[in-house]
Design a protein around this nucleic acid. Structure first.
Lengths: 194, 194
DNA sequence: GTCTATAATTTGATAGAC
DNA sequence: GTCTATCAAATTATAGAC
C-alpha cells in the first residue's frame, strides 16, 4: 500500500504541507526537497514544468484529499444539519491543535496566484467547484431543491473559508464556531417540512 | 491636501496595491520602489525595520481605509439589512471591474504570514477586530443584543472574506451575491419585532 | 531515475556619496 | 532626506555524471 511513498509522492506531500502553512511564493523549492528528503534534481525530473506545475498538482491532489476528509466527517452524521455543524467544529479543533497552521490547504495559494498564474488559478477554481457540487448533492439528497442547494453550498463554503482567515489571524476558534452555527441554521431553514 | 504625496506615502500606497494583488511574499521591495517611483534607499530610511515593518504599516493603514470604505457604503443605507446587502453587492461590482484583483486588502497577507510573522499577524488580527466592532455596533444600534451582534459580525465578515476567495478563483461574482443574500437574511432574522 | 554542482537571476538589505 | 552602487544570500532552473 502506501508503506513506501515514492519520491514524487513525498515531494507532493511535503509541498502541500509547506504551501498550506507558508503559501506558494513563501515556499522555496530547496525547502521542499529538503522536507521531502528528495534530491534536488528529482523535482525537475517529475515536474518538468517546475514550481508552477508542482503547484498545480498539489492544488488538485491536496484539494481532492480535503474533499474526501470533509465527506468523511459529513456523511456519517445523522442528518445534513448536524453534518454541516460537525465540519466546522472539527475544522476548529484541528486548527487549534495545529497551532493555527492547518486551515484550508489551497486558500492561501488561491489568493496568492489568482492574478498571476492561470494554470494554478484554474486548478483552484476546479477544486472549489468540486467541493461545491459535493456539498450541493448532500443538500439535494436531503430534499432541498437544486437552486437552493447551490446557494447553500456557496454560503457554507464561504463561511468556512472566511472563518479560516479570521481564526488564523486572531488565533481563536470564535469565528469558525459562529460560522458553523449559522451554516447549520441556514441548512435547517432550507429543509422541507418533516 | 493630498496633491503632492510624500515619498513615504507613495511607498505605502504602492505596497498596498501590490500586496493586495500578489501577496506579501510575492512582492519584492525593488518592485515596490519602482511602482512608487521612489529611490531604493528611501524605503529603508522611512522603514528601518525593512519589509516586515512596511508590511505591518500597510496592513494597518490599508485596513483602516477599507473599514472607512465599508462604513461609507453601510451608513447611508436606510436600514442595516439593506446596508449589509449593499456591502456585498458593491464589493462584487468592484471586484469584477478590477478584473478580479481587488478584493480584501489584507486577507492574502493574513494567510501568508499567520504562522511566520507575529508583528504582522497581530496587525491583521487588530484590523479584523476593528472591523468586527464597527459592524457589531451597527447591529446593536438597530436593536440587536450585543451577543447576537457579535456573532452576526463574525459570520458577515466570514461570508465576505470567504466569498472573496471563491470569486477570485472562479472569476465570478456568484459567491459574493449568495453570501450577501444570506448575510442580509441573518441580520433581518436577528432584528427585534417592529 | 537518482543525485550533485552550478548557472543565472532575484531577493532583502547596507554603505556611503551627495 | 535623496539616491546609487553594491553585498551576501536565496531564488528557480539546468547540465551532466552516475
Amino acid at each position: 500500500m502506501s508503506s513506501t511513498p515514492t519520491t514524487k509522492e513525498r515531494i507532493v506531500i511535503a509541498s502541500a504541507e509547506l504551501f498550506r502553512r507558508q503559501g506558494y511564493t513563501g515556499t522555496g523549492v530547496k525547502q521542499i526537497v529538503a522536507a521531502a528528503q528528495a534530491p534536488f534534481g528529482s523535482l525537475y525530473h517529475h515536474f518538468p514544468g517546475g514550481k508552477e506545475q508542482l503547484g498545480e498538482q498539489v492544488i488538485r491532489i491536496a484539494g481532492g484529499m480535503y474533499g474526501e476528509l470533509v465527506s468523511a466527517v459529513f456523511d456519517p452524521a445523522p442528518d445534513v444539519v448536524t453534518g454541516t455543524e460537525q465540519v466546522f467544529t472539527l475544522a476548529a479543533q484541528h486548527l487549534a491543535e495545529s497551532d493555527y497552521a492547518d486551515a484550508c490547504p489551497i486558500a492561501t495559494i488561491a489568493l496568492e496566484i489568482a492574478s498571476s498564474s492561470e494554470p494554478m488559478r484554474i486548478a483552484t477554481a476546479e477544486v472549489f467547484e468540486g467541493w461545491l457540487e459535493k456539498l450541493a448533492s448532500r443538500f439535494t439528497a436531503a430534499g432541498i431543491d437544486p437552486a437552493t442547494a447551490r446557494t447553500l453550498a456557496l454560503t457554507t463554503l464561504s463561511l468556512l473559508e472566511g472563518a479560516f482567515v479570521l481564526c488564523r489571524a486572531a488565533r481563536t476558534t470564535e469565528a469558525l464556531l459562529a460560522a458553523g452555527t449559522q451554516a447549520a441554521a441556514a441548512v435547517r431553514a432550507a429543509l422541507p417540512e418533516a
